[in-house]
C-alpha cells in the first residue's frame, strides 16, 4: 500500500513498519500521520508514497485529527452518504506520542474513537536530527543529551508509554517488533478488529540515530526483544481487570528464563551507547540499564501472571 520511492534513510525501521501495518489491513484504510520522518519522507511534493487516502495535520494532533476523521465517517454513514466506515490507522513517532502529542492521544482514548494508533518508536526526534524524547532510553546519546565529560547521555528512564495507554482501559494495547513481522501483523489485525481505540507500540530501529549499520535494523530490533529491553505483549480489559499476555519470543523467555540475553548484547552494537564501553567501560551505568530492564520485565511477568 506504499509506493516505491519512499525517501526514508537506507535501512529505515519506520517505512518497514508502515509497510507491514498496511499489509495487515483487510478493509479500506485511511492513514493519519503525525509530523515526523515517515510523514516527510512519504509526502514531499509533488510526490506521495501513499496508495491509501492519507492526511497529515501537525505534530501533536494526530489522535485529534483521527478523532475528527472517525466522527466524520460515522456521521456520513448515519446520513447514508457513505456505505462503510473504513479502518483508520494513525502512524506517529515517539515525539508525537510520548511528548507533544500525548494530550491529544489521551483525550482520544478517553473518548473511545475507533482507530488503531501505531507508535513507531525510534526513541528520539530523528526528523530534526536526533534529539531526546520521553521515549529515549536511559544513557542513550542524543544531540540534546550528549555523552559529555560529566553527563553520560539521557539520565532519565524511558516513559512506559504502552502501560500508560493500557491504563486508559481501551480494548487493545500491544507491543511489536519488525523482527517478528507475523506477530506484528496479527496484532495490527486485532487492533483493527476491536471496537474503539487500539494502540500498537512498535520498536523502530534507526540506523542514523542509533548509530549502527543499516543492514542491522531488524537484528537490533530482535536483540531488543531477546534482551527484554523491549518485550512483546498484548493486553485487553476483562471484568475491570487488565489481561496481559506475553507473545512470541518474550513468552518463550518467560517460560525459559535462560534465554534472556544480557542487555549488553543490545547496547554494544549501537553507537548511541558507545560511551558506555569506550574509552573505558562504565560498569555502573551498564548495570543500571540492566536493572531497569529487569525491573520492567519483572513487572510485566507479574502483570502476565508469570512471575
Amino acid at each position: 500500500m506504499l509506493h516505491e520511492g519512499v525517501r526514508t534513510c537506507s535501512g529505515c525501521g519506520a517505512s518497514l513498519i508502515a509497510k507491514l501495518v498496511l499489509k495487515a489491513a483487510r478493509k479500506p484504510v485511511v492513514v493519519v500521520s503525525a509530523t515526523g520522518c515517515l510523514e516527510v519522507a512519504t509526502s514531499i511534493l509533488p510526490y506521495t508514497s501513499w496508495k491509501v487516502p492519507w492526511i497529515h495535520n501537525a505534530f501533536e494532533n494526530a489522535a485529534a485529527t483521527a478523532s475528527g476523521v472517525e466522527a466524520a465517517y460515522k456521521a456520513l454513514a448515519k446520513k447514508g452518504l457513505i456505505k462503510e466506515v473504513p479502518d483508520i490507522v494513525v502512524l506517529a513517532g515517539d515525539g508525537g506520542t510520548y511528548d507533544i502529542g500525548f494530550q491529544s492521544l489521551s483525550g482520544a482514548l478517553e473518548r473511545g474513537h475507533d482507530f488503531l494508533y501505531v507508535l513507531y518508536d525510534n526513541e528520539a526526534y530523528m526528523n530534526t536530527g536526533i534529539q531526546r524524547s520521553g521515549g529515549t532510553p536511559r544513557y542513550a546519546w542524543t544531540t540534546t543529551c550528549p555523552a559529555g565529560e560529566v553527563l553520560k547521555g539521557k539520565l532519565e528512564a524511558k516513559k512506559p508509554i504502552a502501560l500508560i495507554v493500557a491504563e486508559h482501559r481501551i480494548p487493545y494495547v500491544a507491543t511489536a517488533s519488525p523482527s517478528e513481522p507475523h506477530d506484528l501483523i496479527r496484532k495490527v489485525r486485532r487492533g483493527l478488529e476491536v471496537e474503539g481505540p487500539a494502540f500498537l507500540h512498535v520498536i523502530c530501529p534507526c540506523p542514523r540515530g542509533w548509530r549502527f549499520d543499516p543492514s542491522l535494523s531488524v537484528e537490533v530490533a530482535r536483540l531488543a526483544v531477546k534482551t527484554c529491553f523491549f518485550p512483546l505483549w498484548e493486553c485487553r480489559w476483562e471484568d475491570d481487570d487488565m489481561v496481559l499476555e506475553l507473545t512470541g519470543p518474550s513468552k518463550l523467555i518467560a517460560e525459559v528464563p535462560e534465554l534472556k540475553l544480557p542487555v549488553e548484547a543490545y547496547l554494544a552494537i549501537q553507537g548511541r551507547f558507545a560511551h558506555l564501553f569506550r574509552p573505558k567501560r562504565m560498569e555502573p551505568l551498564i548495570r543500571q540499564i540492566q536493572a531497569d530492564v529487569d525491573a520492567n520485565w519483572k513487572l510485566l511477568l507479574r502483570r502476565a501472571g508469570m512471575a
Binding site: 519512499v6 537506507s10 535501512g11 529505515c12 518497514l16 519488525p178 513481522p181 549499520d213 543499516p214 543492514s215
Partner: peptide, 28 residues
C-alpha cells in the same frame, strides 16, 4: 516482508527479485 523500500519481490520462478530502481542497498 522485511525490505523497507518495497524493492524486493518474487519473480516468476518464485525466487526473490531485486528492483534496483528503488533498492537503497541497506542489506537487510
Amino acid at each position: 516482508v522485511l525490505c523497507p523500500d518495497m524493492a524486493m519481490g518474487l519473480g516468476e520462478e518464485g525466487k526473490a527479485q531485486v528492483n534496483y530502481d528503488y533498492c537503497k542497498g541497506c542489506g537487510i
